[in-house]
Each structure stands twice: as structure tokens, then as C-alpha cells.
Write a protein that binds this DNA or RNA. Structure first.
Length: 262
DNA sequence: GAAATCTTATAATTTACTTCA
DNA sequence: ATTGAAGTAAATTATAAGATT
């Protein structure tokens, strides 16, 4: 969603994982804990209010040819030779090549449609290298992509997809962390609320028991100045009132109050 | 221990969107 | 202002592999 300026040909990306994560979330919600504002939505879904249309492929589907064009022009790049994957799977289920075979035979960037949707598993070494690269750059510019693909003996598209998925996983993980954090905050608030209710009840009871009977009027109608001890009632003018017990609206905010915040 | 089934992780695809030339 | 290419995020699908029965 956010163009990081990463793919400007003249700019070499050098973002750390954390900073890039923060950056790609800036338009949605902050991830850094100190500025975390729980009043913001978690945006678990529907950030764009997208109602997805799933009619492009009802049974296996039409797969866009891997042209390295990204998703944008998908419909125009649909391969004529595309086939339904499930059927394809049945037909060629016996032709299962190993990862290394796949690596070797898939040097080009295209012609994936003939293979259907075969899923390769990356080797540990490949995954490790990709993870290492991701630590340095959560997005790649075309040059980096090519370089990495060459190094891993993968197609650039595969490297690109890996990074897309990796970013998605990172974000999901962060969302889970945030969710847990909010749950804890909610629990803390509940406890605090219960405690305050209890305290209020006790204070009310104490007040009732310590006041002489003639003073035992509804609390909301009484005002008392703590210094002169004069009692008035709320029906009198506010200006002449020495003191009012009407509480100021105060909302406990655990995110500003470290003692109760989680 | 082998087969069937379930679950999980993740590669790959699709769609909708933004940015920029 | 419009258009198309290129890029991304999000949602989803499909599959490999491990866990369980």
C-alpha cells in the first residue's frame, strides 16, 4: 500500500526489519509500543473495505502467467494454456520432482502455467539466506531481487513471493502480539473497574454511617466545603457554593498510568 | 508399522489499490 | 486529466509435511 520509495532505481534500500515494519504500518496503526494507542483499530481485516470477488476461478482457476509483472495486470496476462489445478494434479501426480530438480529446471521466469500449482519447499539453506536478507531489507529492489534469486537458484518471482509472504507473516505476528496486549489491558481495566466500584460502595457506606441522621439526604443534593464545613445543596447557585462534591469526569487510562497499565 | 485423517506452515495466486511517468 | 506499468497488501487457495488416530 505504501510505496517506500524503495524501488526508485537510484535509491539503495537499507532498512532494518523493525524500521521497515513500522514504516509499512504508519498509515494504519503504530506498532512501536511507546506510542501505541489502543483506541486505534487493530485493522484485523477490511482495511480497504474490499469485498473480494472470487469468480476468476471456481475450480482450480485461471492462473496468470508468471511474467514478473506483479498482480496488477493479472487479468490481461491470463495464460491460454492454464488448466484447472485439481485435474492437473490427478494427471501428473506421479511426476513429483525434488526441490533441487525444480530449482534446476526453473531458471526462467515463465512457463509456470504448464506445471500447474506445484509447491516447492525451500531448503533450509535457502530459507536461512532469505531470512537473513529479510533482516536487512523487508522489501527488495529489482536488483536485489535478481541478485538474491541468482544466489538461491530461484526465480525472481519466487523471491518476490517469499518476501510478500514473509511481510504478511510478520504483520500477522505483530497483530497477534497487539491483540494479546489489548486483552491484558482489558483485563486490567476490568479489575480496576471492579476495584473502584467496590471502593465507591465502601465510601458510600462509610459516609452513611458517619453522618448524623438529619444529614442523611441523597448525596447528590449535598455540597460541603472541606475547610469551613458549611453544607449547601445543589439547587443553590453554583457561584455561591463553597464546594461541590460533583465529581469531575475522569476516565482511567491504563496507557497513561503505568501503575495499572500492563 | 502402515494407512487414513487432521492440522499447520507456507508457496503461489488473485484482486484491489497506490504511485509515478 | 487519463492511462498503463509496476509495485504492494490483503485475502485466499493449494499443497507438502508433520501429528494424530
Amino acid at each position: 500500500m505504501v510505496n517506500h520509495g524503495v524501488f526508485d532505481n537510484n535509491i539503495i534500500l537499507d532498512l532494518t526489519l523493525s524500521s521497515s515494519m513500522l514504516q509499512h504500518n504508519t498509515t494504519k496503526k503504530p506498532c512501536n509500543r511507546p506510542n501505541f494507542d489502543p483506541s486505534l483499530t487493530l485493522a484485523l481485516s477490511g482495511d480497504h473495505g474490499i469485498t473480494k470477488k472470487k469468480h476468476a476461478c471456481d475450480h482450480g482457476g485461471l492462473y496468470g502467467q508468471d511474467s514478473g509483472s506483479g498482480g496488477g495486470g493479472g487479468s490481461s496476462l491470463i495464460s491460454v494454456a492454464s488448466v484447472c489445478v485439481k485435474r492437473e494434479r490427478e494427471v501428473k501426480s506421479e511426476v513429483i520432482s525434488t526441490t533441487s530438480e525444480v530449482e534446476e529446471e526453473e531458471d526462467e521466469d515463465d512457463d509456470n502455467s504448464v506445471n500447474g500449482r506445484k509447491k516447492l519447499r525451500l531448503t533450509k539453506a535457502q530459507s536461512a539466506l532469505l531470512e537473513e536478507a529479510f533482516k536487512h531489507h523487508s522489501s527488495l529492489n529489482p536488483k536485489q531481487k535478481q541478485e538474491l534469486a541468482r544466489e538461491l537458484k530461484l526465480r525472481p518471482r519466487q523471491v518476490e513471493v517469499w518476501f510478500q509472504n514473509r511481510r504478511a507473516r510478520t504483520k500477522l505476528k505483530q497483530t497477534e502480539v497487539d491483540c494479546e496486549y489489548l486483552k491484558k489491558c482489558c483485563e486490567t481495566l476490568k479489575e480496576e473497574n471492579t476495584r473502584l466500584h467496590k471502593e465507591l460502595q465502601e465510601l458510600k457506606a462509610l459516609k452513611q454511617s458517619t453522618q448524623p441522621p438529619y444529614m442523611q439526604l441523597p448525596a447528590a443534593t449535598l455540597t460541603m466545603c472541606p475547610s469551613c464545613k458549611r453544607i449547601g445543596d445543589t439547587t443553590s447557585s453554583a457561584n455561591t457554593r463553597p464546594f461541590s462534591i460533583t465529581p469531575k469526569p475522569h476516565f482511567f487510562n491504563p496507557f497513561n498510568n503505568p501503575s495499572a497499565a500492563c
